[in-house]
Design a protein around this nucleic acid. Structure first.
Length: 556
RNA sequence: UGGGGGAUAGUUCAACGGUAGAACAGCGGACUCUGACUCCGUUAAUCUAGGUUCGAAUCCUAGUCCCCCAGCCA
């Protein structure tokens, strides 16, 4: 699919910067913290950063913001790389880590101390909090704020040498305890963390804070436009303060945009982590998860993510995008590309009483309805077939034009059949239909030109293959899930629906893993990696638009 | 109410002093061997009040409402 770049305030501004000669080329970066998997919200940032760089002939770096070894893991680093590539972006040679700059950041911290702009604070975490002030009251200076640079330097070096326990001291920038912006109330820039780092091992026991690492990393890499989400807008004055007070090699600028919110979806990494940890989902790649790994496994093409992100645009206003827009983009894409197959999810047996027993025949079916002369496959027809339970109503509702007693419908690519008899079990449930077929309608058209209202899908009982099909529903019930401490209250108890007795046409037996296929009249599906020799498993990526369901629901 | 940010159809985004427009959702219809797709039609918005201007969503003033910030997380 041809994706036209969007127009937004970020692109406008970068275009203006380039036109004014403020930069020769644009350099952006996508800076994930490896403490979880990437989700659809990250896709917005990835598409923005890599997209903008590509559109303006610049480059985009992938940089891991790995300044907190207590939360970060190699597994996440690997997963993030895989997901960014899958989304369709390439950082080339430009793979970096904030940890690559630990030595430089440390040297800059010593420089700040020497200049009297940073000090070692011995206050406990509680004392610091108590002295930070409130929204309306200024903070109070620490008793250690005016330590001499030499003493600060000595203490800082001893912090680095491992002489102190976690939390015993921190290094703080000396800015303004009375600032209205909390980020300027002497922010912590180094803390003691006796923890092994995925990349630097045990080289360090002090680690820079986000604020002390991010802007400087941008400067080291020559980033021109540092794009981040709105909640970092308050950090911009601090970002600039470090760049103003340190001998950095370049001068990046930070710009903020609104993060993505999606209806009935939680994009809080904290909550997603807990869903995984507490077993509410099978893992980060559970197809119900809004993670890129989950969406991929579910069958969502990377191009759909890109197109979705393009359509929602980029702005600074808070937003809550209807997940229906995302689903529309997925269908739009898959409609064009997915092969068509027939599959019966909730089978109802049909016996064609006038079809000779022990016989069968091959019928032709299109792989895609728009390719009338394109690829075809054959499907096996016979005396016994399965149809969808929902395609039969003993007492047809108004506007229901599928199968009912005495009624004639078309079996897709096969024959017109008429329901003659309904067989029930002792409980009164319909277990079988006895129908007759019209041999003159082979292929689906009546020579006398008579029309039927409904066309339904089917599979031949003789050669249908069994499969499990998984239907996914939102993980959360409310349109705007809380996402807070008690997110569990919002959890949808039936987010996973497993259909165990599905019957598929045999061509589906060797469907390649992950490739999209349309089960006609039902939706887009793909073979799941849980499939094994003794069991085929399919995921429903997204259902087809279902006007009948709407009519039926409205009629009640 | 200390600092920062934001308000345009139900939703998301345009309109950059000159006719408020698109997509999704909704509704109605056409077509159809997928109640899909496609096509056509249609409902529907500038937070409020003043001001500047021939002309304001856009500029000014005063309000209102919403979001973010008091981690040694990012």
């Amino acid at each position: 699919m041809e994706i036209e770049p969007g127009r937004d305030f970020i692109r406008d501004m970068i275009g203006a910067d380039l036109a004014a000669g403020r930069h020769q080329r644009v350099v952006t970066r996508f800076p994930p913290e490896p403490n979880g998997y990437l989700h659809i919200g990250h896709a917005k940032s990835i598409c923005l950063n890599f997209g903008v760089a590509a559109e303006f002939g610049g480059r985009c770096h992938l940089r891991f913001d790995d300044t907190n070894p207590t939360k970060e893991e190699q597994e996440y680093i690997d997963a993030i790389k895989r997901d960014v590539q899958w989304l369709g972006f390439d950082w080339g040679e430009h793979l970096y880590h904030a940890s690559d700059y630990f030595a430089q950041l440390y040297a800059w911290a010593e420089g700040l101390i020497g200049a009297g702009r940073a000090y070692v604070d011995d206050q406990s975490q509680e004392e610091m909090r108590a002295n930070r002030g409130t929204l309306t009251e200024p903070g109070r200076n620490s008793a250690f704020r005016d330590r001499a640079p030499a003493e600060n330097l000595d203490l800082f070096r001893r912090m680095r040498a491992g002489e102190f326990a976690n939390g015993a001291r921190v290094l703080r920038a000396k800015i303004d305890m009375a600032a209205g912006n909390f980020n300027l109330r002497d922010p912590v820039i180094y803390r003691i963390l006796h923890a092994a780092h995925p990349r630097t091992g045990s080289d360090w026991c002090i680690y820079p804070s986000y604020d002390f690492a991010h802007g400087q990393s941008d400067a080291i890499e020559g980033i021109t436009h540092s794009l981040c989400t709105l909640e970092f807008a308050d950090h911009r004055p601090l970002y600039d303060w470090f760049l103003d007070n340190l001998p950095v090699p370049s001068r990046p600028r930070q710009y903020e945009f609104a993060r993505l919110n999606l209806t009935s979806t939680v994009l809080s990494k904290r909550v997603l982590t807990e869903l995984v940890r507490h077993g509410h989902v099978s893992g980060w790649d559970d197809p119900r998860m809004p993670t890129l790994a989950g969406l991929r496994r579910r069958g969502v093409p990377a191009a759909a993510l890109r197109e979705f992100v393009r359509r929602i645009g980029v702005a600074r206003a808070d937003n809550l995008v209807d997940v229906a827009m995302f689903e529309h983009v997925i269908r739009d894409l898959l409609n064009k590309s997915a092969l068509r197959r027939m599959a019966v999810l909730r089978p109802l047996k049909v016996v064609l009483t006038n079809y000779p027993a022990g016989q069968g025949e091959e019928l032709e079916a299109l792989d895609h309805p728009e390719g009338k002369d394109g690829p075809k496959r054959s499907v096996r027809f016979g005396r016994e077939i399965f149809i969808e339970r929902d395609d039969f109503m003993e007492v047809p509702a108004k506007k229901f034009y599928r199968l009912a007693p005495g009624r004639e419908v078309r079996l897709r690519y096969a024959y017109l059949i008429t329901c003659r008899e309904v067989v029930k079990d002792k409980a009164g449930d319909v277990v079988e239909l006895r129908c007759t077929y019209d041999p003159a309608t082979r292929g689906g058209n009546a020579p006398d030109g008579r029309k039927v209202q409904g066309t339904i899908h089917w599979v031949g009982a003789a050669d249908a293959i069994a499969a499990e099909v998984r239907i996914y529903h939102p993980l959360f019930t409310s349109a705007e899930p809380a996402g807070g401490e008690n997110f569990a209250a919002d959890l949808n108890p039936v987010s996973l629906e497993i259909l165990n007795h599905c019957r598929l046409e045999p061509a589906l037996a060797n469907a390649p893993m992950g490739d999209p296929v349309q089960f006609e009249r039902q939706g887009y599906f793909c073979r799941d990696l849980d499939s094994s020799a003794d069991g085929l498993v399919f995921n429903r990526t997204v259902g087809l638009r279902d006007t009948w369901a709407k009519v039926a629901a409205g009629g009640r």
